[in-house]
Design a protein around this nucleic acid. Structure first.
Length: 306
DNA sequence: AACTCTCACAACCGCTCATTA
DNA sequence: TTAATGAGCGGTTGTGAGAGT
């Protein structure tokens, strides 16, 4: 790994004149002290972060904002899942990659606790190699059914996969029986868990204004109850089909999807502080209840709406 | 024990896009 | 309209650790 690099060897430790000089910004590996500073700041700031360069400055770090952002997203975020990928995760990555290509952030958005960087590395180091060795048996979605209920099925199974790795397999099975295009559409409609790159997730220790996911369907005891502080940031947009025409209901960087039928406006800085603040908008047609209807007959679902 | 090779992954780089003034 | 700024993304690099010799 890179050694913590004091840019401009001789002066990086000189904290007295640390203003606006990129030459004095550190590069390379983060030291434990830096991690601690950043972590402390993120906790202390309680959501009032400003921009990332402010974060770097206010946290007392000799790092560029970009570096801080990366460190937080890829390493320090409290909801990160560390350790090896499970076979189910591997399968899901394979499948998503077959649909999405190298859009690591979008793949990561569907793997809770995993970052795009992690998945990218995993792909490049492990899966690529494995696929090379077993190129004859690479999985491809078989073209087949494409009706909308099936797509909803994909959606819901995808959601469940987020919560239970055992259920990823079900998502896989379902999706692999859909045509590539319909599966892709389904994936595009799939709400993603807020762990992917590009979004601050809501750390469990952060109070979320206007967030009401305590004990309900999406809360600690509901169907999405295995995680706290979960939210569903959208892809570039969520497109729904209504009467044969597509409708965009959520724009990226503008709204987060609130599982409780609300979309809340989000500050563009990254949403860490304001994930559920601001005006509430009705989701309208893309409705979890609607999706529930399609999947409520599934035995593996233990839906207890409130 | 010393050296080399390979792998995994953290971090950087360069680019694009969105927002704001 | 345009320039500046910041966020986000995908590709790439560099390095520590472990395996092999």
């Amino acid at each position: 790994m890179r050694k913590p690099d004091l840019c401009g060897k001789n002066n990086a430790n000189n904290g007295s004149n640390n203003n606006n000089n990129n030459n004095k910004l550190r590069k390379g590996l983060w030291s434990p002290e830096e991690d601690e500073k950043l972590m402390n700041y993120m906790v202390r700031s309680n959501g009032q972060l400003g921009c990332w360069s402010d974060v770097a400055r206010n946290a007392g770090l000799l790092r560029c904002g970009k570096s801080c952002r990366l460190r937080w997203i890829n390493y320090l975020r409290p909801d990160l899942k560390r350790g090896a990928f499970s076979p189910q995760e591997e399968e899901l990555i394979l499948h998503l990659h077959s649909l999405l290509g190298n859009r690591w952030s979008q793949i990561a958005a569907r793997l809770p606790g995993r970052t795009d960087n992690e998945i990218k590395n995993f792909w490049n180091s492990t899966i690529k190699k494995r696929l090379k060795n077993t190129s004859s048996s690479s999985p491809t979605p078989s073209p087949n059914a494409s009706d909308s209920s099936l797509e909803h099925l994909d959606v819901m199974q995808g959601i469940m996969a987020m919560q239970d790795h055992n259920m990823m397999a079900m998502f896989m099975n379902s999706s692999s029986s859909s045509s590539s295009s319909s599966a892709t559409r389904a994936i595009d409609q799939m709400p993603v868990i807020g762990t992917g790159n590009g979004y601050f997730n809501v750390p469990t220790f952060m109070p979320q204004v206007g967030m009401d996911i305590g004990d309900g369907c999406f809360g600690n005891h509901g169907m999405f109850g295995q995680n706290e502080g979960m939210f569903f940031p959208p892809l570039e947009s969520i497109t729904i089909q209504e009467n044969g025409e597509n409708k965009n209901i959520i724009d990226r960087n503008t709204y987060n999807y609130n599982p409780l039928n609300n979309i809340s406006k989000v500050e563009t800085m990254g949403g860490f502080e304001n994930c559920f603040q601001g005006e509430d908008l009705k989701v309208g047609e893309w409705d979890l209840e609607e999706l529930m209807k399609d999947v409520s007959s599934f035995p593996f679902l233990d839906i207890q709406g409130e």
